[in-house]
Structures are given as C-alpha cells and as structure tokens.
C-alpha cells in the first residue's frame, strides 16, 4: 500500500506498531520496548535545544523541530526523559515524512490500540498529548505557509 514514491502511509506504520505491541503480554514488556526505543533515538543537535523549540505541557523537557521538504514534513525531537524519548521515537516513525494534510487529519488510533492513551495519557504531565498537538501545529503551519491558494 506504499505510495508510488516509497513512502509508507500513516495507517500502514500505525498497523506495524500495533502488531509489534501485540507480541507483549505485560506493560513491563511494553515499557521495556519503549525505553529501548528511547535509548536508540538519535540525539538532537545542540543548536536546536533552545527554549523556542520546547514543547509546553511536559513534565520533562521535550525539544521538537520540524522541517518542510518537497511537500512533506520531517520531525526531529529529543527529551531528557527516556520513556518520553520512546514515545517521540514512535511518533516520529509514524508522522515524519508525511504530508501536512495527512498529519493534521490523522487521529493516531495506534496510541489507543496499543493501550497508550489509557495507560499514560490521562494526565497532561507525561506530555504525550502536548507533543502530538505540537506536531500537528507544525503541520498546519506549514500547510498554510506552503499550500494555501
């Protein structure tokens, strides 16, 4: 179902993640996997770690930057907390390289399907929702800037 130029669609990547998580029986295992993803997330170059790139609403510090290239948006991010880095890693995997429209529209159902919404997102303190919102805000901003008629 990949698009002609080799990009996987959002739903396709979401489905992959849901299948990966279905292998885990317990949240201990899920967290171990997320922590592992977090540890593997490439560090953000230091010039991006400034106040204006901070995502508000997180208990940990999250820096998020986005770039618009050939009609698609590419994200880079990092955090000082490793579980958040794992979440970032998943969000980037799903959203980075997608078209602004699709990013704005997606409901990111995989977060509910792997139980993340129920397990983590009830309080604002973990920042998951703040990150999603910020990524969508970038998409909307780029869409208005580059694609408005």
């Amino acid at each position: 179902m990949s698009t002609s130029n080799g990009h996987k669609r959002i739903e396709e990547i979401e489905q992959e993640i849901v299948e990966e998580f279905s292998l885990f029986d317990t949240w201990d295992d899920k967290y171990e996997y997320i922590i592992d993803l977090g540890k593997k997330l490439p560090p953000l170059e230091s010039q991006f770690k400034k106040d204006e790139n901070k995502v508000r609403g997180c208990q940990s510090t999250v820096w998020l930057v986005a770039e618009y290239k050939n009609g698609r948006i590419y994200y880079k991010a990092e955090s000082d907390a490793v579980i958040v880095k794992g979440l970032i890693s998943m969000l980037i995997r799903v959203l980075s390289g997608q078209k602004p429209d699709e990013i704005v529209e997606t409901k990111l159902d995989f977060l509910s399907e792997i139980g993340m919404m129920k397990h983590l997102a009830q309080t604002r303190s973990n920042g998951l929702l703040a990150m999603v919102r910020q990524m969508k805000n970038y998409a909307l901003a780029f869409k208005l800037k580059h694609e408005s008629v």
Binding site: W27, D28, Y31, I35, Q59, S60, D80, A81, V82, I83, V84, L120, S125, N126
Partner: peptide, 12 residues
Amino acid sequence: VHPQDLGILLDN
C-alpha cells in the same frame, strides 16, 4: 534517571 520515568514505572 529522570523523575518522570521513575514515576511512570512505579505507577505501573
């Protein structure tokens, strides 16, 4: 270790 990570794993 970030306190937030500890908080999440302890909650679990």
